[in-house]
Amino acid sequence: MMGRLHYFDFVTSDTHFNHPVMIEKEQARSHFETVHEMNEAMIEQWNKHVKKKDVVLHLGDLGFINHYRSPNELRAILKRLKGYKYLIPGNHDTREVLQVAREAGFTILSPLEIVKLQRKELHFCHYPIEVGRSPKRFSIHGHIHSSTSTHWNQINVGVESPDSKEFGKPFSREDILELMYERMHPVS
């Protein structure tokens, strides 16, 4: 069953828990010696900022399962994360990952959710999408890791986003509002 999102306190994307290739592939993760160390850093950031009753939206590429990384291992990680957790699946979120996420307390959402915030439409999706040139619509996304979004009204909320103040820190609703304001009122 799919959930429906109307509100959020935090949003993040592309944690890729348990995925060893991310340490080799992403500069922001290259200082980690092990997958366990990378996982622990992201769990620590999440739980440092998110309170028990906060609503957290994850925009996909949650974690990794294969013959070396078991579903139980991922489930144990996800159960440690605070908050009411929602997931918009990403391109690496297999059926097995989605099942583990459900078992760990995530509500699975549709690939696109729209939430209104201060008379703006926030289009939440794993991928950056074009939402027109209106200052009333923003694409909040992941997928592109440490790359910058193409359009001014796209905000990358991945754990390695160039807009992030700290690796792994989820973006708060206030962070999103601040980034939207900066994009609508660029300093010359």
Rank of each mutant, 00 (worst) to 15 (best):
P186A: 07
R173E: 14
D54W: 03
L74F: 06
G63R: 09
D14A: 01
K25S: 13
N39T: 03
H92Y: 09
D61K: 07
I88F: 08
H16R: 07
R102C: 07
R4Y: 09
V100R: 03
L57M: 15
P71W: 03
L57Y: 14
G168P: 06
M38R: 12
R4W: 03
S134N: 09
S188E: 13
K169V: 13
E44S: 11
G142R: 04
C125K: 00
S146Y: 11
G168W: 12
D175R: 11
P162T: 04
G63C: 09
N72I: 02
W46Q: 05
S30V: 02
R119I: 00
S70N: 05
M38T: 06
I155D: 07
H16A: 07
S30P: 00
P135A: 04
G83Y: 05
P71E: 11
K79R: 15
V157Y: 06
S149N: 08
I144T: 12
H36M: 02
I155K: 03
S172A: 06
I155L: 15
Y68V: 07
F64Y: 15
K25A: 11
L117K: 08
V21N: 13
E174P: 00
L81A: 04
K82S: 14
K51C: 01
R173Y: 00
T150P: 01
V55P: 00
Q154D: 07
E166T: 10
L177C: 10
P20R: 10
Q27H: 14
H49P: 00
S134E: 10
L5A: 12
Q99V: 04
R80K: 15
R95W: 10
K52S: 11
F8Y: 15
K165R: 14
F17T: 09
H141D: 01
L177W: 02
I23C: 07
P89G: 05
H143Q: 10
V115T: 02
G60S: 06
V11C: 13
H6M: 04
P71H: 07
D54V: 04
I176K: 05
K53D: 15
D175I: 08
N18Y: 12
W152E: 12
L179F: 04
H141Y: 07
S149F: 04
R102T: 10
D14G: 01
W46T: 06
S139W: 09
P111S: 13
F32T: 08
R119E: 03
N153Q: 12
E33G: 12
W152P: 00
V11S: 10
K79G: 02
Q45P: 00
E174Q: 13
V131W: 01
F10C: 09
E103R: 13
R133Q: 12
E26P: 03
D93T: 08
C125H: 12
Q154V: 05
T12A: 13
E44A: 15
H92R: 13
L109N: 03
S70F: 12
I43Y: 04
I176Q: 09
Y84P: 00
S147M: 14
F64P: 05
M180V: 14
S164E: 01
V100N: 09
M1P: 11
V131S: 01
V55L: 03
A101I: 03
N18P: 07
R183C: 01
H92Q: 14
L117D: 08
L74I: 03
I129D: 03
V131Q: 01
R69E: 14
G142H: 08
G132N: 02
M180S: 06
F167K: 08
P162Y: 07
A28W: 14
